[in-house]
Amino acid sequence: MTSTQLVEVVAGVLVRPDGRFLLASRPVGKVYAGYWEFPGGKIEPGEAPYAALVRELQEELAITVTAATPWLVQQFVYPHAHVRLRFYRVSAWQGEPQAQEGQQLNWQTPGQLDVAPMLPANTPILRALSLPAITALTCAGELGEDAVLAALPARLAAGLSLLIVREPDYARDQLASWVARLAELTRPAGCRLLVNAEPDWLAGWPVDGVHLNSARLAACRQRPDFAWVGASAHRPEELQHAAELGLDYALLGHVLPTASHPDAPPLGWQGLACQLASAGPRLPVYALGGLGDADLPAACEAGAHGVALMRGAWA
């Protein structure tokens, strides 16, 4: 019989500088023994989630966490329990992880999982780990296509792996031509190309997915049939809707003052953190609006997956 009591759990996603992340097997004697998961455990009554993370990773791995930021929240109903997992990305720690409870440990590369089976509540995290910390949006309608194309090679050389085409004033044919020019550079570099447009427009285009603006997100009732789908959001309810559709990521903003919305007050970092905490994001959320590369640490500290750059990407 399934328990109706919600069990609060914290999990740590230890990520090395090369992007590899740590998985642990569940030891003999525990439910789902032999399944792989991100290390962590139950939050004790009255215990703060971050404190629980530090304690659990010390007990399980003999490490001391020195840098971790809130990330994703997942709920899952198992036959034995209803759990809510709060995932933290752990970027720094003291000591080398060592199994303290008879479990196996294995470092994995995003997109190349070679252990199985995976504990179900942890599976969505694997796809999120393949998304970069920084994405960029085009604004050729403002800066000119030549300016974006001139700056793009440096961005790609620096590791840009997700580019969103955002040209709200382009007609369909003009947008198709622009996407084709971008694909000539992004495809050889292994950079995913998504387009903010009507999904029906993209048939036969050299793209990896579609990005939904907030109006299309509101009208959407099922995930569009693309390998990658993202959306723009402005409120926690929109983030929830994107998660319910099974989208891969969302953009949330605007965080700082921006020329695109001169009369709308920005969220600010505290506002961003409050919105993310309210939403309990089930999908990666990029902070957007008036940002540059240097804003990545602040965005992650607020609970975002990373930053989405528009004008700041092409300066």
Rank of each mutant, 00 (worst) to 15 (best):
E37Y: 09
V115H: 08
V15H: 04
L256E: 11
P199C: 01
Q103F: 10
Y88V: 01
E244V: 08
E145I: 10
G268A: 12
L160E: 03
R55T: 09
A302V: 06
G306K: 06
A151W: 03
L272I: 08
S3C: 10
T186C: 13
E237V: 14
L6R: 14
M1F: 05
P257M: 00
L14F: 10
T2W: 01
V73L: 12
D18M: 04
M118D: 00
A154T: 12
A231Y: 06
G141A: 03
Q222W: 01
R86A: 10
Q104I: 00
I125P: 05
S278M: 13
F76S: 09
N213Q: 06
R86T: 09
W228N: 00
A279R: 10
A180N: 05
Q112L: 09
H241L: 14
N213M: 05
I63H: 02
L126R: 09
A81I: 05
Y50C: 00
A299V: 04
V307T: 10
H261I: 04
A287F: 02
D200I: 00
I164C: 11
G111A: 05
Y249G: 01
E167N: 07
A11E: 13
Y249A: 02
M310G: 01
Q94R: 14
H82A: 13
L131K: 04
A99Q: 08
P117F: 09
G159N: 02
P236A: 11
Q75W: 01
G303T: 03
L22W: 05
L105K: 09
D295M: 02
A157V: 11
P224C: 11
V90A: 08
A264P: 00
V9T: 13
L152P: 07
E44G: 05
E47T: 12
A171V: 12
A308S: 11
R55A: 12
A51N: 08
A294R: 14
L193N: 06
S232F: 06
V7Y: 04
R235G: 00
D225P: 02
L185N: 02
P206R: 08
H80C: 04
Q5I: 14
T258C: 15
A81L: 11
H241W: 15
T69P: 00
G46N: 10
I63P: 03
V255I: 15
L251E: 07
L105V: 08
Q270L: 10
G141E: 13
G303R: 01
S260Q: 04
S214I: 03
L23G: 06
V13I: 15
A158K: 06
E60V: 14
F38N: 05
E59W: 08
S214L: 11
E198N: 13
L53Q: 11
F38A: 06
A81T: 10
H80N: 11
T66E: 14
W36K: 09
P266F: 07
A128R: 06
R26L: 15
G190D: 02
L272E: 04
R187I: 10
P257A: 14
Q112R: 13
F76D: 09
E101F: 06
I43R: 13
C220V: 01
E142N: 00
G209V: 04
P281D: 10
A171R: 13
A136S: 05
D295K: 02
L202S: 03
L129R: 05
Q270V: 12
P132A: 04
V7T: 13
P284M: 06
G209K: 04
E238Q: 15
D293H: 12
R89V: 13
T109G: 00
P266N: 07
E56R: 15
Q174C: 09
Q222L: 02
